[in-house]
Computed example of a mutant assay.
Amino acid sequence: MELMAEGLGMQDTGVFRGMVHRDGSDELLRVNHYPPSLRPEAVGGGSTGFGEHTDPQIMSLLRSNSIPGLQIALQDGSWLPVPPDTESIFVNVGDAMQVLTNGRYRSVRHRVVAEAGEEVRSRLSMIYFGGPAPVERIVPVAGVMGPLEPKLYKSFTWEEYMTAAYKTNLATCRLEPFLLLQLGAEESPKDASELLLNAATAPQ
């Protein structure tokens, strides 16, 4: 988290780490077991082991065995398999980090597909989720943003976010209720700032 803050040019590189290290922070370590699919039609294609979603937290760290199954969504809507690597830790940006960085880091949509077949073994993964305390206010960090850059998200507490998230389907974009300004797939926060400034200064 400190390296991510440093990469953004922030003077306070401990701001993200501090949210996870405070008393009452929403940290979780989970082990997932995905047995081979029993559906005959899954042979060669797989079936859903865990549906598409983004992680809510600031960051999640994943370690798995040598069995594939993890896939990430690309901008064109296609799914890219992530080869398993027992020597690596996969870092996922969560929804909270997307808000804190005003869209500079994007939470990655992903899913797990369970393969089928006589030779297929179970996939095991261990995931650490680093989230803030329920009372922590999630808002774009001032140290990230430029002087004329608009905030893309309104302020909310982690508890407010999770309460809203539990009322939605897994695949729903759970940040949508908190959006102030839509950020397109090809836009950067700088682009959005210029669009807003142009609109404000345009002749009426």
Rank of each mutant, 00 (worst) to 15 (best):
residue 81 P to S: 05
residue 84 P to G: 03
residue 95 D to Y: 03
residue 98 Q to I: 01
residue 92 N to M: 12
residue 80 L to H: 13
residue 113 V to C: 08
residue 104 R to L: 03
residue 97 M to F: 13
residue 117 G to E: 11
residue 74 L to K: 13
residue 100 L to S: 06
residue 76 D to W: 14
residue 77 G to L: 09
residue 70 L to K: 09
residue 64 S to G: 15
residue 105 Y to T: 00
residue 110 H to R: 05
residue 80 L to C: 11
residue 121 R to Q: 15
residue 85 D to F: 03
residue 104 R to Y: 08
residue 65 N to K: 08
residue 86 T to M: 05
residue 65 N to F: 13
residue 99 V to R: 07
residue 94 G to R: 01
residue 85 D to N: 15
residue 94 G to E: 04
residue 99 V to E: 12
residue 121 R to S: 14
residue 86 T to P: 13
residue 102 N to T: 05
residue 83 P to H: 04
residue 116 A to N: 08
residue 65 N to Y: 11
residue 91 V to P: 03
residue 115 E to Q: 13
residue 107 S to W: 02
residue 99 V to S: 09
residue 88 S to A: 15
residue 104 R to E: 06
residue 119 E to S: 10
residue 77 G to P: 15
residue 74 L to T: 11
residue 93 V to Y: 06
residue 108 V to K: 06
residue 104 R to M: 02
residue 76 D to L: 06
residue 65 N to Q: 13
residue 106 R to T: 06
residue 103 G to N: 04
residue 91 V to I: 12
residue 91 V to H: 02
residue 90 F to P: 04
residue 89 I to E: 08
residue 76 D to Q: 07
residue 88 S to C: 09
residue 106 R to H: 13
residue 95 D to S: 03
residue 77 G to C: 08
residue 106 R to N: 05
residue 112 V to H: 10
residue 97 M to S: 10
residue 86 T to F: 02
residue 98 Q to C: 03
residue 81 P to I: 04
residue 68 P to F: 10
residue 108 V to H: 08
residue 121 R to T: 13
residue 111 R to I: 07
residue 91 V to Q: 00
residue 72 I to Q: 07
residue 73 A to R: 15
residue 64 S to Q: 15
residue 75 Q to W: 11
residue 85 D to I: 01
residue 96 A to T: 14
residue 78 S to W: 03
residue 83 P to G: 01
residue 75 Q to M: 05
residue 119 E to P: 00
residue 119 E to D: 14
residue 72 I to P: 13
residue 111 R to V: 09
residue 85 D to E: 02
residue 111 R to N: 11
residue 113 V to N: 10
residue 106 R to A: 03
residue 118 E to Y: 03
residue 86 T to E: 12
residue 118 E to C: 02
residue 77 G to R: 10
residue 65 N to L: 12
residue 71 Q to M: 05
residue 87 E to W: 01
residue 92 N to C: 04
residue 73 A to C: 14
residue 100 L to C: 02
residue 67 I to N: 12
residue 81 P to E: 02
residue 84 P to Y: 02
residue 80 L to T: 01
residue 102 N to L: 04
residue 69 G to N: 14
residue 72 I to K: 05
residue 92 N to Q: 14
residue 106 R to Y: 01
residue 93 V to Q: 00
residue 103 G to F: 01
residue 116 A to Y: 08
residue 104 R to S: 01
residue 66 S to E: 15
residue 120 V to C: 04
residue 91 V to A: 01
residue 105 Y to C: 00
residue 69 G to T: 11
residue 90 F to E: 04
residue 111 R to G: 13
residue 120 V to Q: 12
residue 98 Q to P: 13
residue 93 V to R: 00
residue 100 L to D: 06
residue 92 N to V: 02
residue 84 P to C: 02
residue 81 P to C: 03
residue 90 F to R: 04
residue 82 V to P: 10
residue 106 R to K: 15
residue 66 S to H: 15
residue 91 V to T: 04
residue 101 T to G: 07
residue 122 S to Y: 12
residue 106 R to E: 07
residue 63 R to E: 11
residue 82 V to S: 07
residue 67 I to Q: 15
residue 92 N to I: 01
residue 107 S to R: 02
residue 73 A to W: 10
residue 116 A to F: 09
residue 112 V to K: 09
residue 86 T to W: 00
residue 94 G to M: 00
residue 121 R to D: 15
residue 84 P to K: 01
residue 63 R to Q: 15
residue 79 W to H: 08
residue 107 S to Y: 02
residue 93 V to F: 06
residue 77 G to V: 07
residue 94 G to P: 12
residue 119 E to C: 01
residue 110 H to W: 08
residue 70 L to V: 07
